[in-house]
């Protein structure tokens, strides 16, 4: 059983890395953690109310969870779980603890795709993950050069270009 960490921007396109993970670790049971990094809210109301934490679930759409479900069904025998998590840290030790706590075995990054977080608070976790000391695999996403017909929210984003 391997725990794989994949940063996501909640685009269905980015879920292609799940497929890449299954192909990279054949014959392995996988548990995948999709992580979305957010800048912590330092404003007074943010610190008091934790409102950002409460609204993070609006960042991803029903189509996104449905796409996760499609992948779970497709790789039912190897994919044990797909979990969505939020990462608020900014220090190296926080990241280390985060990865350790989830006993991550490998990190998968997209080689040819820059994450486009849906909110201003989102941030790029790639550089930190590359320096984390964990095994990092950079996979090609093979996204179409032009945007797909149905836009960002369609399952067809998961199909090979």
């Amino acid at each position: 059983m391997k725990n794989i960490l994949i940063p996501t921007d909640f685009s269905i396109k980015s879920l292609k890395l799940v497929k890449a993970a299954v192909e990279r670790f054949p014959e392995e049971q996988l548990q995948i953690t999709l992580v979305h990094a957010l800048k912590p809210d330092h404003s007074i109301s943010g610190l008091l109310m934790l409102n950002k934490r409460l609204t993070v679930h609006q960042l991803y759409t029903a189509e996104f969870t449905e796409a996760c479900e499609v992948l779970r069904n497709k790789y039912a025998s190897v994919l044990k779980k797909i979990r969505i998590e939020f990462y608020y840290g900014s220090s190296k030790s926080y990241l280390k603890n985060f990865l350790e706590a989830r006993s991550i075995d490998a990190i998968l990054l997209a080689r040819d795709y820059t994450l486009q977080p849906p909110s201003k608070a989102g941030r790029d976790l790639y550089p930190e993950l590359r320096n984390s000391g964990y095994p990092v695999f950079e996979e090609p996403l093979q996204t179409a050069t032009q945007r797909t017909l149905a836009g960002e929210a369609s399952l067809s984003e998961l199909l090979p270009a």
């Binding site: 969870t65 449905e66 796409a67 479900e69 499609v70 069904n73 497709k74 017909l149 369609s154 399952l155 067809s156 998961l158 199909l159």
Partner: peptide, 17 residues
Amino acid sequence: VTVAIASGSARLYIIVK
């Protein structure tokens, strides 16, 4: 023309492209 079949939590998808 590609026809893809996928299955989500409770729905089946047939995508004709």
